[in-house]
Design a protein around this nucleic acid. Structure first.
Lengths: 300, 300
DNA sequence: TATGCCTTATAGAGCATAGCTATCAAGGGA
DNA sequence: TCCCTTGATAGCTATGCTCTATAAGGCATA
């Protein structure tokens, strides 16, 4: 069983295109094409549906997909383990983080690189569900996400901090009642994350408990976009307090406590709980356990 | 990364001998020797300590051992998944079972082969600790063992039956008091399993709670050996009631209830809980869940 | 209808590598 | 000293992966 051929298969599944998959694997198109045929011959099944162009996987192809991913992940882990049997880690650490946790990721990455200077880090902003999915598909080494809501199966986690939310408005913008109650919040002109995003789902759930619903005038998928909207003065937004550090120097922004000191949402590092655990995952968990976040991140 | 070379490495680690490892891999000794060198070159580390003969693994070799096992297990699982994407399983199912559970393994295997006619099954009698170790090393697909004592981590289980023990003696052998109490048990001439075996540890623990200890005159590692000793008439033994079915036709044997209806020990199937779960493990769990054991195996 | 492009498969050559047999070198024991 | 065990080396063969070049089928457009 050639790991290389399985990589061809996975690249083809990702790209949906022979030539692009070949380029991604740094081989020629005929090489990848022949490699797929070889793999199909060795396994005794057709994996790809073709009618003059790529047309998805066969049922057998879909069936072996998880095992193919595990195989290349295992090969990768073996190389990592050999390279780092002693001494610092090398290679690339693939991190996924929810947007709300982005302010914290700098601390985590800095701590990782302090411990392992040769390590490259690749950060992707993802939804919590994408993080879960990509961890299972071995396309991420670790994730930074919520620990309490719909926690993924087969995952180990280390809590880092508790996120609370706050309302932010422009100094010369809409008037925010003080103190703010839930009903008052619901009638404010708001811009929020898209409805599918977990942070938004949590917020919606809190209001739904009280029979209220938010009707944001604008939705976006990034807090930077929300802050840009707030800066215009016409809207308010609700953002995690971890972003407060980013707002410290902003003269135009004003923050308000949310209607009720909510219990907060635990945010932490998760890795796939496979046996044995890869060296990268081990390292991330180890660093996360010892991590001390700066002021502005509450731990309980 | 060549799966083949990693198999060479694992075979060498198991056999501790280049030529034997090569024979086990169905290749010549120089081939395996060169394969190890190639693997060491690709990984950039020496894996084997050599001074004119095999002298164990280096630290790096030990470090990558779990990942090497996972890699070949993943390759194996990929082949299995492709072969059995639809239709019955093929290949070899490697089962480990504690001696006490051997009478039940026939039912499990029969049910597996009824569902998957092409499946070969290889059964090994092992201690519960060996089962746990070999599952982690991907050298077993499933185990039949105790579920309640020192359950292994990273394992999924399905309970099958509850094992209770009974005393067995020869009809014309030593007199057994009726009813039997713990103190009376302790002074009987007994033959039992070796002290390290888990069934024996459980029994010893039960007596230790009452300040008693068994001093068997003979110990063995198989119930057949114990029954042979009992047949001589001089000794009694304590065996699981699952063996009662085997004694049904024996005129020379007499069974006695143990001093106290003990709570019994749950026995069931365990598989390694890795993601994704191999097709063999899935099949064993599925069959075990639907398995109906015959009379003589209590389920609660 | 003809042309051109996009996509995948095929052909043939070159090279790397894994396999074999035969043999050698270094210890260890009789 | 001789012989056996153990692993490494040499030389050769065969397999097979990779490349470039090209063919073939479909689709859009002139």
């Amino acid at each position: 069983m050639q790991t290389r051929l399985v990589e061809y298969f996975l690249a083809l599944e990702r790209e949906g295109h022979f030539a692009r998959a070949a380029a991604h694997c740094n081989v020629s198109q005929p090489t990848l094409s022949a490699g797929i045929v070889t793999l199909e011959t060795q396994l005794g099944k057709r994996l790809i549906r073709r009618d003059r162009k790529y047309a998805g996987l066969t049922a057998e192809g879909e069936a072996i997909l998880p095992w193919a991913r595990q195989l290349v992940a295992a090969a990768e882990a073996l190389g990592q383990a050999a390279e780092t049997a002693r001494g610092p880690l090398k290679g690339e650490l693939r991190l996924g983080a929810i947007p709300a946790a982005m302010p914290a990721i700098g601390c985590l990455v800095a701590a990782m690189q302090a411990r392992h200077p040769g390590l490259n880090v690749s950060i992707r902003a993802l939804t919590s569900r994408q993080i879960e999915r990509d961890l299972a598909a071995f396309e991420l080494d670790a994730g930074l996400t919520y620990l309490d809501f719909e926690p993924p199966a087969h995952a180990l986690s280390v809590p880092l901090y508790v996120e609370r939310t706050m309302l932010v408005s422009a100094v010369d913008g809409v008037a925010v009642p003080d103190p703010l109650d839930w009903a008052g919040l619901a009638i404010l002109p708001l811009c929020l994350l898209h409805q599918g995003m977990q942070n938004r789902r949590i917020l919606d759930a809190r209001l739904a408990e009280r029979g209220l619903a938010l009707r944001p005038l604008v939705t976006a998928d990034s807090y930077v976009a929300l802050l840009g909207l707030v800066q215009q003065g016409r809207l308010c937004s609700i953002i995690p307090d971890s972003h407060a550090t980013l707002l410290d120097g902003l003269s135009w922004a004003r923050t308000h406590a949310m209607p009720q000191a909510d219990e907060g949402s635990r945010v932490g590092v998760i890795v796939s709980d496979s046996a044995p655990m890869g060296p990268l995952a081990q390292a991330v968990l180890g660093v996360a356990r010892e991590l001390r976040l700066p002021q502005g991140f509450r731990t309980g």
